[in-house]
Write a protein that binds this DNA or RNA. Structure first.
Length: 602
RNA sequence: GGAGUGGUAGCUCAGUUGGUUAGAGCGCCGGCCUGUCACGCCGGAGGUCGCGGGUUCGAGUCCCGUCCACCCCGCCA
């Protein structure tokens, strides 16, 4: 037998018992005579004491122990000597006086120390199995389990069925780039890995499943980010005979359960709802972070006749002028202004207009344009923007969406520069609703679905869809936002064949293409489809936020690096020519020396 | 595809206007130590300063190129 208890289990009441523990050597404190070893498993630490007078053999062996050796110890649970209890450890009142020790496995010196922070992510990922021994990561994995368990429990109680959908799936024309899998049995044809189980879950509604969920792995072949991996997990939910409010209540309950069962935190029973238009207008983002204020204020009326042509000209062309007041940030450095200006330009602005309001008197204001403004204009700004000495005002003048977008980014950048969120532990939940159904892609010169092509237009905007007024059709779609992160999104779906066809046509998908790519779902809708809708939660992001991490890599057991490479197992990697031949695939990838590689290395 | 930050000992980092033999903490190795828990004390080993080129009497430091990592934008219906 390896153990009678785990390493965070022994307490005062066990004193006098003989126990057996197994685990890793977390640390050794060798005093020559007496030796202390902290034994660790995933649950915690227990101190073992080796004394020659108890067992000469064990004490002798204990001198040779190194970090991360794996041991089995047997000994007597004893109270620690007076004044030597360790209140940092749950097991700190007791220790195991060892009478027998077995070295199960020795460890080489580790490539990094487990008790120190480590910035070399390459090294961490290469030895992920060691990284995961660190308490923070071990805790994250346990939290992740808690959240998925809470999800399953909650949805089960609500009558949802967990159903698996295919991983070998069909390529979809819209959306992200697909991962493709060549088919050996159908030469020249390919499966795609699912970007989401969207169509399957809708077909399950046609099947009468009524309430479906899946903790589903999804795949998108796009560039990575700290919150994006090529394969990720989403909590995929779909239900029949539901309206938007039903899904919203369901998710509020689900998130409540997740936070309760993982962190023990009570979150609000319902979240504020905000339209997409209000979110953009007020925060310059469809996923506003409301943990700090700095709202976007419209000053178009105040400055429409301003002598500063950038402002008045924009208004004359139908644009707007918006501003944010970065309270107390008038002492911003020139370098920081430059940085913000560059950011604004990246977001599409021509420049960044600002006022550093050093004191009350406008003569103390530092600004490229303020001298050209009338006293009335200044007065209006003072009032509307609540300008006080020490404030920094940033302006954007452009078409409404662009001005909002630019200032939205400024708002986040200022919060970053000013460390507004340092130490903030709030959880601010929010629903963003009434998204536009379609958005025009200038590059492709076509309309794209903002959410996806199965999203239902709002009933009151249906006539606009008929009329081809695509820009003003709103969708029965909603996102759930936590602290400026989109943690989920969903919609009520189209369940009518004719409407779905109309939607495809609006997206520029010809009748032939509809037949080839979507006949299964269009046909299914002709056999009695219930109204339905659902949502998908970004599970990795949710767990990341629950764990207080800044990257989803910290909550995924074996993540890939920025280039999509698993540097531990070295995947992706080359395959044998024979494997490719069986799949009727030939690589045209060029090796470093510019030759076509027909026998890839492995 | 574009911008930014970084790369110095096993790890985390410092290294000033270019100037002696490139440092610290932790880890590692050896020794001492019977109540520690970031144990302590003594001693020691350990470096292609990412790589290549250049400027210079002299380059970790300046210049050019390049590779890698992270981060952001694009992209992610």
């Amino acid at each position: 037998m390896y153990r009678t208890h785990h390493c965070n289990e022994i307490r005062k009441e066990h004193i006098g018992e003989v126990v057996t523990l197994s685990g890793w050597v977390n640390s050794t404190r060798d005093h020559g005579g007496v030796i202390f070893i902290d034994l660790r498993d995933r649950e915690g630490l227990t101190q073992a004491v080796f004394r020659p007078e108890e067992s000469e053999e064990a004490a002798k062996l204990s001198h040779t122990l190194r970090f991360e050796d794996v041991l089995k110890i047997e000994g007597l649970v004893s109270a620690r000597l007076d004044g030597t209890a360790n209140n940092k450890l749950a097991t700190g009142d007791v220790e195991i006086v060892v009478r027998e020790v077995t070295v199960i496995s020795r460890s080489e010196v580790l490539p990094f120390q487990l008790d120190k922070e480590l910035s070399n992510e390459d090294l961490r990922l290469k030895h992920r199995y060691l990284d995961l021994r660190r308490p923070r990561l071990a805790r994250n994995l346990q939290m992740r389990h808690r959240v998925s368990k809470a999800t399953r429990d909650f949805l089960d109680e609500k009558g949802f069925l967990e159903i698996e959908t295919p991983i070998l799936s069909k390529s979809t024309p819209e959306g992200a780039r697909d991962f493709l899998v060549p088919s050996r049995l159908s030469p020249g044809k390919f499966y795609a890995l699912p970007q989401a189980p969207q169509q399957y879950k809708q077909l399950l509604q046609v099947a009468g499943v009524d309430k479906y969920f899946q903790i589903a792995r999804c795949f998108r072949d796009e560039d990575l980010r700290s919150d994006r991996q090529p394969e990720f997990t989403q909590v995929d939910i779909e239900a029949s005979f539901v309206e938007q409010s039903d899904i919203i209540s369901l998710i509020e309950g689900l998130l409540g359960r997740c936070f309760k069962d993982s962190l023990g935190v009570d979150i609000p029973g319902s979240f504020e709802q905000m339209t997409y238009h209000t979110a953009m207008d007020t925060y310059g983002s469809d996923k506003p972070d409301r943990r700090f204020d700095m709202k976007l204020i419209d000053v178009t009326e105040d400055l429409k006749d301003c002598e500063f042509r950038v402002f008045s000209g924009t208004v004359a062309n139908g644009g707007v002028i918006k501003a944010i007041n970065a309270k107390g940030f008038a002492d911003i450095s020139t370098g920081q202004i430059d940085k913000l200006t560059k950011l604004a330009q990246e977001a599409g602005a021509k420049g960044l207009a600002y006022i550093q309001a050093r004191d009350v008197d406008r003569k103390t204001w530092r600004s490229p344009f303020v001298k050209r403004m009338t006293d009335e204009e200044i007065k209006a700004l003072r009032t509307n923007l609540n300008i006080e000495p020490g404030d920094l005002i940033l302006f954007a003048a452009d078409k409404w969406p662009d001005a909002c977008e630019v200032l939205g980014r400024m708002r986040l950048a200022v919060a970053e520069l000013k460390n507004l969120l340092e130490g903030n532990t709030d959880f601010d939940f929010l629903w963003v609703t009434d998204f536009p159904l379609l958005a025009f892609d200038a590059e492709e010169e076509k309309w794209n679905a903002v959410h996806h092509p199965f999203t239902r237009p709002k009933a009151e905007d249906m006539d606009k869809l008929e009329a081809g007024d695509y820009a003003n059709v709103r969708a029965e779609a909603y996102d759930v936002v936590l602290n400026g992160n989109e943690i989920g999104g969903g919609s009520i779906r189209i369940h009518e064949q004719a409407l779905q066809q109309k939607m495809f046509t609006a997206l520029g998908i010809s009748d032939e293409e509809q037949e080839a790519m979507f006949s299964h779902i269009l046909t299914a809708f002709s056999y009695g489809a219930p109204p339905h809708g659902g949502v998908a939660l970004g599970f990795d992001r949710l767990v990341m936020l629950i764990c207080g991490e800044e990257s989803i890599r910290e909550v995924i057991a074996f993540p890939k690096n920025n280039k999509g490479v698993d540097i531990m197992s070295d995947s992706p990697s080359g395959v044998d020519f024979k494997q490719l031949r069986e799949l009727y695939v030939r690589s045209v990838a060029k090796e470093k020396k510019a030759e076509v590689d027909e026998t890839p290395t492995s």
